[in-house]
Design a protein around this nucleic acid. Structure first.
Lengths: 152, 152
DNA sequence: GTAATTGCAAACGCTTTGCAGCGCC
DNA sequence: GGCGCTGCAAAGCGTTTGCAATTAC
């Protein structure tokens, strides 16, 4: 439920992506930047297919390219990849810290911020492991499924 | 890295599974209990294919049945299903609380216990959501991949 | 110019499904 | 004996791959 990314941050990230691409001696294709722009328009975590359908309407690009570019955006640390369920990977902007509440019955995912939890993670240190980011999934029952269960 | 499940707990869980099956008016097939027994022998999180190959050597059973039974064991709250990466779901005994340290480079998964973190979760309450369990994945670089990176 | 990147389509791997026959209740 | 469960095989679906054509540098 976060507000759309503001244009200053957008510009900054676009610049970082451009730098990243250059540093790897890769090419700045229009497809890559078109995809990045659509990424900014996503309000919550999204999957490749959602992003693809969203882009497709105004820019001709194929799924494989979306996969490739999103992978690049993860390497560049603009996006992060999460595995919430069986179906497909979910992506989110890196600065968007929250937990996922996932209903075991209907599969609905809710994003929840919890500062205490974030602090708890910041403090953690691991031997022989350089942590980059945390992905926390809490499985349970959403309110409407709880209600449904009671009726039965 | 946990010790094998001791026989008392095993007996208890077998009983619970039997009860669960009866309560749903399902059948106590030998396949279901053979699979449960193999589940107890797993030392860390495992996937369906590992479990299947492990069973197959001494008991004729097909993949679909393993999928079905493991799903039942999750419903019965003996197992929990985690999504660590793209490839496949990972399963663990419910009483085995730990985080997963996942290397972004080689994909290796390490299990780590952290009591502070568990307590932090216990305290959390969510509006309109009945939490059942938490699955925490920490992505980063393992020590050997960190070393590899430095060399380049 | 030339090598990286794209679109397309086929391949891949995990999981689910449909179905005929078996066996638990 | 009936119907739930099994094995088998095929289908489904997200993702990856191979390749010829395109295009950024």
């Amino acid at each position: 439920m976060k507000a759309k990314v503001d244009s200053e941050i957008k510009e900054h990230l676009r610049g970082r992506f451009a730098e990243f691409i250059k540093s790897k001696r890769m090419r700045q294709t229009p497809e890559r930047f078109a995809i990045l722009d659509k990424v900014f328009e996503q309000r919550v975590h999204f999957d490749i297919d959602e992003l693809y359908r969203d882009i497709e309407s105004e820019y001709r690009v194929c799924r494989a390219t979306v996969y490739n570019t999103v992978e690049l955006l993860c390497e560049c640390n603009i996006l992060r990849k999460h595995y919430l369920n069986e179906n497909q990977a979910a992506y989110e902007l890196s600065d968007d810290r929250h937990l996922h509440l996932i209903c075991l019955n209907c599969g609905k995912v809710r994003e929840v911020r919890d500062e205490g939890f974030n602090e708890c993670f910041e403090k953690m240190k691991f031997r022989q492991f350089k942590a980059s980011f945390i992905s926390t999934n809490i499985y349970g029952l959403c309110s409407s499924c709880t209600r449904k269960m009671k009726k039965e």
